[in-house]
Structure formats: C-alpha cells, structure tokens
Design a protein around this nucleic acid. Structure first.
Length: 495
RNA sequence: GGUUUCUUGGCCGAGUGGCUAGGCAGAGCUCUGCAAAAGCUCGUACAACAGUUCGAAUCUGUUAGAAACCUCCA
C-alpha cells in the first residue's frame, strides 16, 4: 500500500513501525460549536483508513482527541471571541459547552457510520502531562518563561532542527509574513508559540502550574496524547490540511525538542470542503452543520440528505482534493448510493447455481472483466486510499450484479470462484471498508395504512378470504386491526 | 508577498505517457398492459501557448485563472 506523506510530499510504501500494529492519531474537533460538514470529511476519511487497515489485517490503535481547552479565549488576539461571548451571555460554564458539543459531535458522526476510535482523549484530562512536557522542553533549553507564560523558542529550535519541514516553510520567510498581533510583546519572536499561557483574571479554565495559574497552549495536547497512547514515534498522524501549519508543525517541534525523535512516520492530510465554491469556516458563519444536512433545515440546502448520502458523497472524491458541497452533487450521490445498496442486497441473496447449469456458458472475457473490477478496486485502495476510483469499480460491479440478478441463468458465464470473489469483495468493500450501510426507510405507517385500504375494500366485497389473510399478516407482525363501531378501521399494537 | 495545490465532457468527479473510470442529468433502444427498476447504445472532455516524445489530459516551461494556508478553524 502506498500513502501520500505530507512530510516528504511523495507517495511512500506504507510499512508500519511495529507490524501488524498500527498507531494512528487524528486531530479531532474543538468542541465549541455544532459540528459542520467540514468536520465530517476527516471523520469519514480516516474512518475508512482505519477500516481499510483492519481489512488488510493490521491491528489498529486509533486515537482521536477532543480539544476542550486552549481555544476558548484567544491567545493574543484581543478581538471578539463569539464563543466565550456567547458563553457569557448564556451564563454557561465552559465545560458545559464542551460537554454539550462533544455529545453533539458523537451524535452526528455516529450517524455517518464512523467507527469510534479506540481512545478519545481530552486535553483537560491531560493537564499534568502537558505541564510535564512543557517542563521537559524548558529543561532542553528550547523554551522560555515570560510573565507566567512559557513560549517555545522557534529560533533556537531552528538552529538544531528544521522548523517548517512539514509545510515547506522557511523560518525567515515566516517572520516577514507574520502580522503584528496584539499581546505578543512577551514573545521574543513572532513565530514563537505558547506552551503554557498565563490565565488572565477573567479566564475561566485555569490550572496551577510551576509558572502560575494558566492553561496549556494550542499544540501541546496532541503531542502529549499521541505520545502517551501511541509512543514517541508512531505510524500515522492525520488531520485537515489547514492544521498542517502551524498546528502540526508545532507538534513536530515539540516532540523533537522533548524526545529528539520525529514523532510521526506518515502525515496524512485531507483537503477542505467548500460550499458552492466558497470556503466554509466557523468565523465567516457560512457553515452548514451536519445536523442541518440531515434535516435539510438550512436555506442553502434544497432538501435533506441522509447520512449515507453524505458519506457516499465524501468518498466519491479523493481525500486530497477539495470537495464542493452542492445540491446537485449531493443529489447525484443520493442516487448513486441507493444504486449500490440495492445491488448489495441483491448480491447477498445471489448464489452460484448448485448444479444443472450449462458449462458451455463460461465466457472467459466476462470472467476476466470481473476479476479486473476486483483488482482495480483493490488497487485503488492500495494507492493512497482512492475511494473515488474504488466506487467507480464498484459501480461496474453493480451493473454485472443487476444483470445476473435478472438473468440468473447467465451466472455460469463466470467461474464459481470468480463469482465468490466478486460477492465477497463487493460486500467487504461496501460494508466493511467504505462503511456504507443500508438506510431503511421508515415507511411502516404508510404501508400499514395502504394495507388497511385493501382490507376495507375486501370487506366491502365480502371477500373474507382476503380479509382473513390480511388479518393474519398483521398478527404475524404483532399488530391488530380494529374494526370500530363507527365503521372506521384502525390499527394498533397487539396487546 | 511567501508556502502548498488545483484548472477534465451539461454537472460532479477519477486517471496510467499509447488501451471505455465512474456517478448524475440528457437522447435512443430492449423489456413492459402502462410505468418503474434494470440492461444496452450515444454525445465534442481534458485552461491557453510552446517544448520533450514515435505518441501527452498525463513530463518540462511560460501565461491566464482559482483555492487553501501564512491568524481560531477539519
């Protein structure tokens, strides 16, 4: 398998440090707002990575953090922070916000059929470790204390290591480009970043430390938690491209400063999502939440889109391309998804004929074609998780499956082993790897009412055979038909 | 200004130097009491220019345009 490593900017052969074990860390959400469609992409994509690695037989330990401190009030920026403003307005504890949005996050991400990570650590749960790491970097001489805060000394670090290796930035260029921000006077250098930040009196989340009361810096938690659960060097670190700089760059710096080792072997970054070609972000407020997507309750949306439609839509693009959310695109995915699921249900029931089939039917061309679909689909996944390509091949299989379904007698055009391979792979890819599952329509009520119509008609015609038959079906489903005195017919649960 | 990336048919969206990606929409056909579903067939696609090559959407260069990041964000 090959993966595109942001660090080398090349596709590299994936070789776990400690095969068959794979350690994967993905930056999770900052839980101070409703999860939006931009949160859905990494969640779904890295879920597929997790699933595919397991499909290949690896034992994955998947860690995805919850950032619940460090972003509630800005570092330096004196501008308005809508969240803390709102927290104040609603008189909520920060942890109340955190708890509420964490639950919201899991709620919608679960609906997308994302398997929960093995560990979901929180930043507030690792304050002690973060203090320890800060001390370690101080001891290494790569940080300095300024008025109760601790800053990472990027300049000094850059003399022994290369700061900017992940994002391809050069420190000197960065300095010129960096804007003047408020509250940065304490820093020796604008590129320096906070490891520990002194808490202002109004700051609600605070812990005592050797440097006074404060809270951990933005980048510290990921270094601490990834190291704690996956070791000083682990296999995969994932996240959105926007985290490449400075977040992941700082993580590398923190890790190298404290352990002297590169923390991550393969860096994977998913691209951004746009809405009608405009970038989505929390601050500009043009965002669509995942809940809204499911409910259709947003002016941008023409209708509601089911979780699996959204998942299918995300997987139809390669993860390193930007993905534009449009109604047309989602609608196309809705249909494409249903087509695949219909075929999934069909192939599950479809069997190769036991005997009495015409052995002369065997057609090597078709047989080879099926094998190619299978090979191509697997190759696509092997090549940097090309889910779009894999879905294309699955689509090819769908056609064949539908044909075989309508003309089962033609199944022996392919060998029994070929049939078994396609069946097994199709199900495995769709369900296990891509994580697409059937969404059952909840049309029970409508169907019951329809059946009652027939019941009434049959009764009017005194066709009691049909009447009894319908009653029987209701009973079999633990329902009863109630012929009311006023002539109405209703249904209820069997008591 | 710097860094990274992108520009594919009506829309979305893959792609290897030479062989049909795929989906959606559209047209025609088959099947069908009518439909639907399904299958088959079809449309001019690869930003522009130049170069490398027997051959390039795929490599190189130039130009134009776009995006993300450089500041909290997945």
């Amino acid at each position: 398998m090959k993966v595109q490593n942001t660090l080398s900017q090349k596709k590299e052969v994936f070789e776990p440090i400690n095969s068959p074990h794979v350690g994967m860390y993905v930056c999770g959400p900052t839980v101070y707002n409703l999860p939006h469609i931009g949160n859905a992409r990494p969640a779904v994509f890295f879920d597929v990575v997790n699933r595919y690695l397991q499909f290949l037989g690896y034992k994955v330990r998947y860690v995805r953090n919850i950032t619940d401190v460090g972003h509630l009030t800005d570092d330096g920026d004196m501008g308005e922070d809508k969240i803390s403003k709102r927290a104040k307005l609603e008189q909520l504890e920060p942890m109340e916000i955190v708890d509420f949005y964490t639950r919201k996050y899991f709620e919608v991400i679960d609906k997308l059929n994302v398997i929960r990570p093995n560990i979901t650590p929180t930043a507030t749960g690792h304050i002690v470790e973060q203090i320890q790491l800060t001390q370690k970097i101080l001891d290494a001489g790569l940080a300095y204390i300024a008025d109760g805060s601790v800053y990472f000394d990027v300049h000094k670090y850059n003399k022994q290591e290369k700061y900017g290796e992940l994002s391809g930035r050069i420190l000197d260029d960065l300095l010129e480009a960096t804007r003047e921000l408020d509250g940065q006077e304490e820093k020796r250098n604008p590129a320096d970043f906070a490891l520990w930040k002194k808490a202002q009196p109004e700051h609600l989340m605070r812990w005592s430390s050797p440097w006074g009361e404060g809270f951990p810096g933005w980048h510290l938690e990921c270094t601490v938690m990834s190291t704690k659960y996956l070791g000083e060097t682990f296999d995969i670190h994932g996240g959105g491209m926007d985290l490449m700089f400075p977040h992941h760059e700082c993580e590398i710096a923190q890790a190298k400063a404290s352990t002297g080792k590169a923390p991550v072997k393969y860096w994977l970054h998913n691209n951004m999502i746009t809405i009608d070609n405009a970038k989505m972000s929390k601050s500009t407020g043009n965002f669509v939440t995942i809940e809204e997507l499911f409910s259709g309750n947003n002016p941008i949306l023409a209708q509601a889109y089911s979780p699996m439609t959204v998942r299918f839509f995300i997987l139809q693009a390669h993860y390193r391309s930007t993905l534009d959310f449009t109604n047309d695109g989602l609608l196309a995915s809705q249909k494409g998804y249903k087509r695949v699921i219909n075929a999934l249900n069909i192939i599950k029931k479809l069997e190769f004929p036991k005997e009495n089939f015409d052995k002369n039917l065997f057609d090597e061309k078709i047989d080879t074609q099926i094998h190619q679909f299978c090979d191509n689909a697997l190759r696509a996944m092997q090549d940097d998780f090309n889910t779009a390509m894999a879905l294309g091949q699955i689509s090819n299989m769908v056609k064949k499956i539908n044909t075989f379904y309508l003309q089962p007698e033609t199944i022996p055009q392919i060998a029994e082993t070929t049939f078994a391979r396609m069946k097994g792979l199709f199900i495995a890819l769709v369900e296990d790897v891509l994580g697409l599952q059937e969404e059952k329509n909840d049309n029970t009520e409508g169907l019951i009412v329809a059946l009652l119509e027939f019941y009434k008609e049959a009764k009017a015609e005194k066709n009691y055979a049909i009447v009894d038959k319908i009653r029987g079906h209701f009973k079999a489903n633990k329902l009863t038909i109630k012929d009311l005195k006023n002539g109405n017919v209703e249904w209820g649960y069997e008591e």
